[in-house]
Write a protein that binds this DNA or RNA. Structure first.
Lengths: 337, 337
DNA sequence: ATGAAAGCGCTAACAA
DNA sequence: TTGTTAGCGCTTTCAT
């Protein structure tokens, strides 16, 4: 493997000093046009690609953002990865990916953040998850600019982009309560882009407002596995009075519930109405098609990257916790909504 | 932001030279135990994290692998990302992700590979896609060790991990031909972990062997969009004789076809049998559940990373193009298979 | 407008 | 076993 062309080679080829080459590749405007052209030509001739690692060392910046996500959240965020990737590319940042869970590490997040620190990433994107708090504590400790996706939080070095989960819970619930329906079940998925605790609170708030109480036994937590969730739901239907409304934390679980209903002869939306979350392909695949709360997934990813870079460039940030708009997409799994 | 602790700080704190500190953090075994302990303690006390960027510059290695994927392949490969992530972590490699498509670049892959070169990634993982050839040509030009996922190919600096798509096509087809059924339709998804051209060849080969011909009009190419694909299939069923067997390049498209059948009153598996590919959640969600060709997705990702690292460490590689085993998982969408 | 030289934090000969 | 020193390829003052 022959050695790569360096800035010295270019300097020699163009008969200038390496400082001038550096100026040219960094777009400094003090270089005389003739010189610049000569350098540019040499760069092209030698097919010179500036070494980002060396640049990183010299500038103490890696122009790299670390993206840390639980592997299990992955399928749900493909569009978000799109938003992150596109935006990173546009802004000339590299994106290093770190997956958590799966591997039986004792402290995956801790381990990962240590790697991030070593890699000298300029910033990090964290997803809402169980142990997000510990993650934030660590990035704070290391002074690492952080963007959180899926949970409202902000701090000196922390921005976030999220959807107002509490409002979602409240709105959906209120719609039904207003029509005298309070027989609601909340299916809490294991983890998500939505802060399901807030959503839960929103439901409760609507109940309180109506002078009622949303009991804790109206919440069921499920597996990420479709088949497992499906079985759980089937069992639930066998052993409980069929609820009138189901609010599910993610479309996939909603589909599992729909199928369980189908098998138990529960008619949707006549006997039971169900609402999913995220508005993914699952919602469209489902029969009947799923009413779902649409989330601007791609944009959330893009905003996260943009926020990080703003922090890095010390640009003005008017809002450190950006709330993205959600919309309810009504399909065939509801009728009273 | 106070300056980060460097190897000098540690050296001073432990009262040794920086070389010794370097030895300790690199696990050299020439350091005397007492000294090592002193250094280790200083490292802990100062919370020193070795700067990978500087190390990269010094060693001319970044211990980074670039993972380049079309965004649209994403949902299909979440487990693969798991395999890549876990393996990378185990082997202490960072993974930089580059998404292609979506953005209206003229030459996404070219642009991306240029970035990869600048980042000085030690190697790159490429996914099977339309323009993979150009990608390979570029990585070859830059002498970048490359692992390809989803297509058999190998070269001096190129390894690959794939499934034998031709065999899959052949096997499935032969099973039906042997039973006198030759009314087969091939639904070619837009892109995939499987080389669908090879699969197509496999189907043809089985036909030839049976003294028949698999006509080109028995192939339909579809959109990645579920709804779009679904509509196309519905139209197809309206305007063509219903085929007896459908082989789909990916589960999602298979599900779309299943639903179109359902709406048109085509009974599965009695009137039509259908086989999906990958064995994803879609296969389980489908009603009837989908017979699908299971692919060891996670392992393919893991193998890809392992191969790259082997090339990088100049370890012995017995097979530069690794064929992974597929298995047909029979469910309810077939009966004669 | 350009060049010389120091330094970013580390590794790896080579010496001691 | 440990220390000294010369790079790795670039940016960035400071001179000129």
């Amino acid at each position: 493997m022959k050695k790569k062309t360096t800035i010295y080679d270019v300097a020699e080829e163009a008969d200038v000093s390496l400082a001038t080459v550096s100026r040219v590749i960094n777009g400094s405007n003090v270089v005389k046009k003739a010189t610049r052209d000569r350098v540019l030509e040499a760069i092209k001739r030698l097919d010179f690609k500036p070494n980002q690692v060396a640049r990183g060392l010299a500038t103490s910046k890696s122009t790299t953002i670390a993206v840390v996500f639980p592997q299990s959240i992955f399928a749900r965020v493909k569009d978000m990865i799109g938003g992150i990737g596109d935006t990173g590319r546009t802004l000339d940042y590299s994106l290093t990916m770190y997956t958590t869970d799966e591997l039986g590490d004792s402290n995956p997040l801790e381990d990962v953040i240590e790697r991030v620190v070593k890699s000298r990433a300029d910033g990090v994107i964290l997803f809402n998850s169980q142990d997000i708090e510990k993650g934030l504590q660590l990035t704070k400790q290391y002074n690492l600019p952080t963007a959180v996706i899926g949970q409202k939080t902000s701090d000196d070095n922390v921005c976030s982009v999220y959807v107002d989960a509490k409002a979602i819970g409240y709105e959906l619930t209120k719609k039904y309560l207003d029509q005298g329906i309070d027989d609601i079940l909340f299916v809490k998925a294991r983890q998500n882009l939505i802060d399901l605790n807030s959503l839960h609170e929103g439901i409760k708030a609507a109940f309180v407002e109506a002078g009622k109480t949303f009991e804790d036994d109206r919440v069921i937590t499920t597996s990420n596995e479709f088949e497992q969730a499906h079985n759980d739901f089937a069992k639930y239907l066998d052993s409980h009075k069929t609820p009138r409304v189901v609010i599910a934390g993610y479309d996939k679980e909603a589909v599992a519930f729909v199928q369980a209903c189908d098998e138990k002869g529960v008619k949707i939306p006549d006997d039971l109405e169900i609402i999913g979350m995220v508005d993914s392909t699952y919602a469209i695949i489902s029969r009947p098609k799923l009413t779902s709360v649409h989330l601007p997934i791609y944009d959330m990813g893009a905003v996260a990257v943009r926020m990080i870079t703003k922090m890095l460039n010390e640009e003005e940030i008017d809002e450190r916790a950006v709330c993205m708009k959600h919309t309810v997409v009504k399909r065939d799994s509801t009728k009273l909504l």
